[in-house]
Amino acid sequence: MALCGAALAAEEKRGQVTNLPLPRFVSLKANEGNVRRGPSLTHRIDWVFKRRDMPLEITAEHGHWRRVQDRDGAGGWVHYALLSGVRTVLIEQDMAPIHTRPDAGSPVDAAFELGVVARLGECTPEWCRVSAGGYKGWIEKTALWGVGKDEIRE
């Protein structure tokens, strides 16, 4: 039985190794992570990610290797041991207000600078709970990279 185009589009793409959704977000577990041209130690290192907890997007899998990209689309192949399922996000708006509740009218507890890496908590369709530097609260999802536009987290 063949699926029609709409049903096929609704079907999630899954990794051939983990059977987890692709693309998906993870974070860098290590202080440094070699980014290789291909999925093996014999492939050349193109550059090194040097920011622990940085959010990354997995776009493909091959054995113990994951093809990842950062906020700017830079990436390559990284060994899975360097990645963590702990979710983080990158603040994409300078002095982004962190609210006490998921409501623009609620009090602001803090403001995060552009480029801050924050731990991701629950998300509604428009807001996410984040924490960084001892501060926590709610931020509009549009100010973040590292969470899906339609992603809901509890």
Rank of each mutant, 00 (worst) to 15 (best):
A2N: 11
C4R: 03
A6T: 15
A7I: 15
E11H: 14
E12G: 05
R14H: 07
R14G: 06
V17L: 05
T18F: 07
L20G: 04
V26T: 02
L28P: 01
K29A: 15
G33N: 08
G33D: 05
V35C: 09
R36E: 09
R36P: 02
R37L: 15
T42M: 14
H43C: 09
H43T: 03
R44W: 06
D46H: 08
D46Q: 04
W47P: 00
V48C: 00
F49T: 04
K50W: 00
K50A: 10
R51Y: 05
R52E: 06
D53C: 02
I58S: 10
T59Y: 15
T59Q: 15
G63W: 08
H64I: 12
W65R: 08
R66K: 11
V68D: 11
V68H: 13
V68Q: 13
R71F: 06
R71E: 03
A74W: 12
G75W: 08
G75E: 01
W77G: 03
V78W: 11
Y80K: 07
Y80P: 01
L83V: 02
G85E: 00
V89W: 00
V89H: 00
I91E: 04
E92D: 10
E92I: 07
D94Y: 08
D94L: 12
A96W: 05
A96V: 10
I98E: 02
H99P: 01
D103M: 00
D103Y: 05
D109T: 13
A111F: 08
A111W: 03
E113S: 14
V116M: 10
V116T: 11
A118Y: 04
R119T: 09
C123Q: 08
T124H: 04
W127Q: 07
C128N: 10
V130N: 06
A132H: 01
Y135T: 12
G137M: 10
W138H: 02
E140L: 14
K141P: 07
K141L: 13
T142M: 12
T142V: 15
A143W: 07
W145R: 00
W145C: 00
K149Q: 08
E154W: 09
